[in-house]
């Protein structure tokens, strides 16, 4: 009798299990087709950094070095320089002449973004930066800085005019 019960219990459990997997066949698939379809990130996703500009197209970064001080991985290297009347890059006295982020070191913790008092450095949503040479992982300022939207507009207008 005991054996019979065991066999019946086992069969019932197995049939229920198979029923469960069978039901899943008819559910919509949740698989993402990366890299054909790029994943959608949440707004706060910590991807490759972006250096922002203010509404006048000037760089927001004032070279205060807080991001590089906050960085646990020492990934940020900055050289500051003074703004002059002729050449003005940022609103304040100083601007970052050199701004490098070494993505071989960066751990994407977001501490630089939290430290930045002018919201100059933010996280973008780009994430694919596999390369063959580690020295190409050092991103310079021109790679990080977002394009000047006003200049872009101007260029588009001139393109259309031409």
């Amino acid at each position: 009798m005991n054996l019979l019960r065991e066999v019946v219990d086992a069969s019932v459990a197995l049939v229920k299990g198979y029923g469960m997997t069978l039901r899943h066949v008819f559910r919509p698939a949740i698989t993402e087709n990366y890299p054909d379809v790029l994943p959608k990130f949440e707004e706060r996703y910590r991807g490759i950094h972006e250096l922002q500009r203010d509404e006048n197209g000037l760089e927001k970064c004032v070279a205060c070095f807080l991001c590089s001080a906050a960085c646990p991985a020492n990934a940020i290297y900055i050289e500051a320089a003074e703004n002059t009347e002729k050449e003005r890059f940022s609103q304040a006295e100083r601007y970052a002449k050199v701004y490098n982020i070494d993505y071989g070191r960066c751990i994407f913790c977001g501490f630089c973004v939290e430290a930045c008092p002018t919201d100059a450095i933010t996280h973008g949503h780009k994430f694919e930066f596999a390369i063959y040479d580690t020295k190409d992982l050092i991103y310079t300022k021109d790679m990080l800085l977002v394009p000047d939207s006003r200049k872009e507009k101007g260029r588009k207008a001139s393109d259309q005019a031409a």
Binding site: F41, E42, E43, R44, Y45, R46, I107, F108, C109, G110, F111, E114, H123
Partner: peptide, 24 residues
């Protein structure tokens, strides 16, 4: 986790004294 702090596996979320930012 990604929505709250931007990280999925390496969250680094809490801060001394509370949270770094309000949850969305």
């Amino acid at each position: 986790f990604e929505a709250a702090c931007g990280g999925r596996l390496t969250t680094s979320y809490f801060r001394v004294g509370g949270l770094p930012s309000e949850i969305p």
